[in-house]
Design a protein around this nucleic acid. Structure first.
Lengths: 248, 248
DNA sequence: CGTAAATTTGATGGTTTTCAAGCCATGTGG
DNA sequence: CCACATGGCTTGAAAACCATCAAATTTACG
């Protein structure tokens, strides 16, 4: 299905943090619940009813960041040749648009990978939040720093197997109801490949090899069968601390 | 390694922002100059008298971030196989350790690439700075967000020539006294290769090809001869700026 | 049910890495 | 002062890994 690039303003409605699916994990929850208590209103919730729906496009003015309430988004850029580069996937509780803080326009586009809902945090609202609760600003900074850590960890020089193994372990952690349970990936192999800097076919082949080894069950519903083996492969991606270079 | 710096005190001393070489570009300057005015003291300046000196090691408790006063640092991780991954180079005015904000330990090590000086901003000092001047916290957040943008831009799927071209343009911008003037890279080819996810030999070969095309002069003192050609090659990498992690 | 997209498998080729050797600059010790 | 060792840089040849091209199969969805 072709991606629906038009960003038609969806009918926003007021979200209640009380019934939010990410209650307890939302980075903005404290403040929003404050709002609920005081004004009976919280953040505007925006539905992205089907995959391919664009939340915002790269280069457009950045007036807000978002919290994922449900579903899955990807942030992407398009280079001169039209190739799509996936910069990250965002699941419920994640913030989208942190790379636009302090920038007048979004450096990447945010697109739904599956039907999703997001809560909008306008920069004006953030300003108010920060002056009222400086603690929130510190938390946002820590979120951004964490995302920076993750991005830097991903930018290493790894083999296809290392990257796919690390990705699958991360997806299981985020998507599987329980460790060892089956899970379905919301994004396509093409999206995964673009994220991992691989060709679609390479992702398939690596998954096939993992299945041959008995490390994972492949197909639509994936399952991790040998976490130790996958962790051993993925180990270099999560850097080993303490091997500091020599001081002199 | 050349010792082109005067002998520096082995112990930390108080730095004056008035005479700082990065005066006007320092992210912490306002606050520090405040300190100077009020207490006659600013941030402790730490000398890293020669290349290879470790400022902090990955995995150790993160009590501070740093501003580069002079020289050049790299931030690196070591994977299980002992391979070094260079996460970024940091020049005067850049902040080092932003990926440790909100983390109890440093996710990467910081090592001098050439004789350097840094100013220490302890987390305690940062706390005080933030409560006194919330504006500073917002600025730090924007610095971190910018670094996140750069890291994400770097994580794309680019060819060796695209990456080397983008890197060289970046280095010229930061190191050359004037556009088109010659400049010497403080880091080794090996460091560059680790930063760009390439083999050392590939970096050499690409530089050789650039020289053949007449785009750059190679050797110890580099010079950009055809910026347009290099920009054309590097275009997909660089919607904005930023191959070397920097926070200026 | 039929079309289009997504996934998977196979064959081939290209970019980059690896292995190996030579060159150059710098620093050291005789 | 020179020989020598060291580490960085450069270059060449072969191999590995992954991308590309192509096509079959499965899945999704109107």
């Amino acid at each position: 299905m072709p991606y629906d690039m038009q960003a038609t303003p969806a009918t926003t409605h007021v979200a209640s943090c009380i019934t939010c699916p990410v209650r307890g994990r939302c980075p903005a929850e404290e403040r929003l619940c404050d709002d609920v208590a005081r004004h009976g209103a919280a953040a505007p919730s925006i539905p992205l009813p089907h995959a391919g729906k664009t939340l915002y496009a790269a280069g457009t003015p950045a007036f807000a960041i978002y919290v994922v309430r449900a579903g899955c988004l990807k942030t992407v850029t398009h280079d001169a040749d039209g190739n799509e580069h996936v910069r990250g996937f965002h699941f419920p509780g994640d913030l989208v648009g942190l790379d636009a803080v302090g920038s007048s326009s979004y450096p990447s586009s945010a697109i739904a990978v599956s039907p999703s809902q997001v809560c909008r945090l306008s920069k004006g609202r953030l300003q108010g939040m920060f002056s009222a609760q400086p603690e929130q600003l510190r938390r946002l900074l820590e979120h951004t720093s964490r995302e920076l850590r993750d991005a830097l960890a991903m930018s290493g020089n790894y083999t296809a197997e290392q990257r796919v193994a690390a990705f699958m372990l991360e997806m299981e952690e985020r998507l599987a109801p329980a460790p060892g349970a089956g899970f379905a990936l919301p994004m396509t192999r093409r999206d995964i490949a673009n994220r991992l800097r691989l060709a679609t076919e390479t992702v398939c082949r690596v998954l096939g090899r993992f299945a041959e080894h008995g490390w994972m069950r492949g197909g639509a519903r994936l399952k991790v069968l040998d976490r130790e083996a996958l962790c051993a492969v993925a180990a270099p991606v999560n850097p080993a601390h303490g091997l500091a270079a020599m001081a002199a």
